[in-house]
Each structure stands twice: as C-alpha cells, then as structure tokens.
Amino acid sequence: MSDNKKVVVYVRLKDGVLDPQGVTIHKALIQMGYTDFVSVRSGRFFELEIDDSAGDIDRKIDEVCSKLLANPVIEKYVVEKA
C-alpha cells in the first residue's frame, strides 16, 4: 500500500574489537560438539521504514547510523536496501 522505502542496517563490532558475547557463543558451540566452527562474531540489525517523499534519504540514513544506531568508536555498519 505505502511506497515507503525500506532498508536494513547491520551493525557489527569493528575488526579487532573483542566481542565477549561472540566468544562465549563460540565456546558453547565447541562444548556442544560443533568443533568445526572456528569463530563467532555477534551483531544486530535494524529494519527501517522511511517516508522518502522529502528526499535526501541516503544522507539521512547515514546520519542516523553514525549518530545513533552505531557507535563509530567500536562499531561499523552496512545499509542494505530492501
């Protein structure tokens, strides 16, 4: 019905930043017998629905990601257009 724009933002820790959650999940996998799993990195994603009638949407998405959804000190993000 609506022609709102939909994007998915994936936020993950930068390479080299320790991910204790990922490490713990990995340890659990090993314990479960999945010894062929070499590493786990955790992250999160956001589904955004945007009314793009005002335009300039790419810049706004980028701003939202860097100001709020990700902490640029430790995280990076990828925007995927649906």
Binding site: V17, L18, P20, Q21, N71, V73, I74
Partner: peptide, 17 residues
Amino acid sequence: LTECGMLPGALMRNHHL
C-alpha cells in the same frame, strides 16, 4: 559521556559477561 563524545573511548560488555 562517552556516547556523546565528551569523553573518548567506549564502554563495552564486561569481558566475562
């Protein structure tokens, strides 16, 4: 303070969770 950039760095999950 770190989130708004008034202090440098970031505070992450405790290493032991």
